Amino acid sequence: MFEDIKARQDKLTKLINRHCKEAGVLQTTIPSLFLIRSNMVDEPAYRVFNPSFCFVTQGLKEIFLAEERLEYGPSNYLITSMNLPVIGQVIKASPEVPYLSLKLDLSQNEILEVLKDANLYSDSKNNDSRAMLVGQIELTILDAVLRLVQLLDSPQDIPYLAPIHKKEIIYRLLQGQYGATLAQIAMEGSNTYRIRKGIDQIIQHYDQPLRVEELADVANMSISSFHRHFKEFTAMSPLQFQKQLRLQEARSLLLMESADATEVAFRVGYESASQFSREYSRMFGLPPKTDIKRMKETYEQVEGNIDQNLIVTSNLN
């Protein structure tokens, strides 16, 4: 079994290496499939991870969800069932042996369609678990992934076969270690489904005052129940979640627009510039002005310009 998995990993490594020649993130011609390459250990990246399946074929990566650390490499896969603000960093890569991975975005409707078509049913509607998990890769999942990525060599087949192979990947994931967790994304009435609605509300209005009563109402839960389940899924409170979104967006605005820190603080929802500066420093290690100056100098030295794949990215729009 190990030899079979290794053989397929090697094939995927060659495919990614051939199609993603430059460091960064490549949006492929297959809808929702991205290839990632890094030739060096990166700066920590602060971003919002959307529901997706990720698999590393070479190298090593770590992700922090609040205070929890997840590490995954070629023997693992990462599955995310909600939009989550995280800190990610490639921790093993070199020009000779680059970090190579793929990311496949998953939607609630796609999962629901597979559940219905395959007549699958999960009775774990209220089985709370983290919304980001690392699992052991299985041969059936890897075979399905390989079939999808191989379509990059026959683009004429992508429109017809890519949806079929993606359904197969979802089907295999639903039957895998975290199948019940993934299924709950699409199961109306499950705690996952309800908390996702609350998360969507925070993301859409991240710059507005947070009212837990409204979030609980959107999720159709009591306030205490919403708080408890929210922290179980995300490893943080709603207020901590919103704070990470605000600070990530602020860093992006400061870097891309060269805007004034006080102006940005108000734009992302802070009422106090001094509070913004304190919380920014606590999250990123330096005050806003110093942090942005350091980032720009670092990327200009490494790449000659700012590498968009190493800086903060945002899914708030």
Rank of each mutant, 00 (worst) to 15 (best):
F2A: 12
E3R: 12
E3A: 11
I5V: 11
I5Q: 07
A7W: 05
A7V: 08
Q9P: 01
K14A: 14
K14L: 11
N17I: 00
C20Y: 00
E22S: 11
E22W: 05
A23F: 03
V25Y: 06
T29Y: 03
F34A: 11
I36A: 12
S38C: 13
D42M: 10
E43V: 09
E43P: 00
A45I: 10
Y46I: 05
F49E: 09
F49C: 06
V56N: 05
T57K: 01
Q58L: 08
Q58H: 13
K61E: 15
I63L: 11
F64M: 11
A66K: 08
R69F: 00
Y72N: 07
S75D: 13
S75K: 15
L78W: 02
S81W: 01
Q89F: 08
V90L: 03
K92W: 05
P95F: 07
P95R: 08
V97R: 14
P98K: 07
Y99M: 04
D105I: 09
L106I: 14
S107K: 14
N109M: 14
N109A: 15
V114R: 00
K116Y: 04
A118V: 07
Y121P: 00
D123C: 08
D123Q: 11
S124Q: 15
S124K: 15
K125I: 13
S129F: 03
M132T: 09
M132L: 12
V134G: 02
L139V: 07
L139K: 08
L139I: 10
I141E: 15
V145T: 15
L148D: 05
L148N: 04
V149S: 03
L152S: 05
L152G: 04
D153R: 07
P159W: 04
P159A: 05
L161C: 00
L161T: 02
P163D: 04
I164E: 09
K167P: 02
E168A: 13
I169D: 03
L173R: 02
G176A: 09
Q177K: 09
Q177T: 08
Y178R: 07
Y178F: 11
Q184T: 13
E188K: 14
D200E: 13
Q201V: 01
I202K: 00
H205G: 07
P209I: 03
R211L: 11
E214M: 14
D217W: 06
A219K: 06
A219D: 07
N220R: 12
N220Q: 12
M221N: 04
S222I: 04
S222P: 03
S222N: 13
I223V: 12
S225Y: 02
H227L: 11
H227M: 10
H227P: 00
H229V: 12
F230T: 01
K231N: 10
E232R: 15
F233H: 10
F233R: 11
A235Y: 09
M236V: 06
S237H: 03
S237M: 08
F241T: 05
F241S: 02
Q242V: 06
Q242Y: 02
K243I: 06
L247S: 06
L247D: 03
S252W: 14
A259D: 12
A259Y: 01
A261R: 07
A261G: 00
T262K: 13
E271L: 12
F276Y: 15
F276S: 04
S277R: 14
S277I: 08
S281P: 03
R282Y: 08
M283N: 00
F284W: 05
G285H: 04
T290K: 15
R294V: 06
R294G: 01
E300Q: 12
E300C: 00
E300R: 09
E303K: 05
N309C: 06
S314A: 02
N315H: 14
